[in-house]
Every structure is written in C-alpha cells, then in structure tokens.
Amino acid sequence: MKINYNGTTIEVKDNLSLHSFVTELQLESRTIAAAVNEEIVPKKNWENFFLQEGMTVDIFNLVAGG
C-alpha cells in the first residue's frame, strides 16, 4: 500500500504497525514523535496503531535551534 511519509509517497507492506514502520526506518532509538493525518500518536500506542492506505505519516525530531 501507499502512504505519504514526510511529504513523499512511499510503498509499505500491508498490516504495518506504526512501531514496525519506525523500526524499519531505524528510528526507534531516536528522540522522535509521530503524527498520522496531523494527529499525534503517543508512543505507547504505536504497536497497536496500524497504517492504512493513503495515510499521511510525519515523524519529527529535535534539531539544533535557538
């Protein structure tokens, strides 16, 4: 299925949890937050949150800034 990830359309496998998606991107150990369709999904819900066709997934982190 196709999803929109950080502004780009990408192909991911079906029945993919948000946790698995983050793990596949090797981001699981980093200081991040995730939003799906512009709603924040708390980390504790990632394992039970399954992505669906056409969803918009944004992953954010903290970067240098004043």
Binding site: N6, F60, A64, G66
Partner: peptide
Amino acid sequence: TMAVKRIDTQDHTDEIISPLLDMGIQL
C-alpha cells in the same frame, strides 16, 4: 533550546541532545 522538525533520516543533528542530557541540561 532546540527546535522541532520533520526528520531527515540522513541527518543526525538530533544527536545534539544526548551530550546535553548527559550534562544534566534542562531542555
């Protein structure tokens, strides 16, 4: 202080945070 941005998987500038946390800095 620091900023929130959409992640760039090629960019590891978020690694700024670990040394600051190790120093006990309030973020």
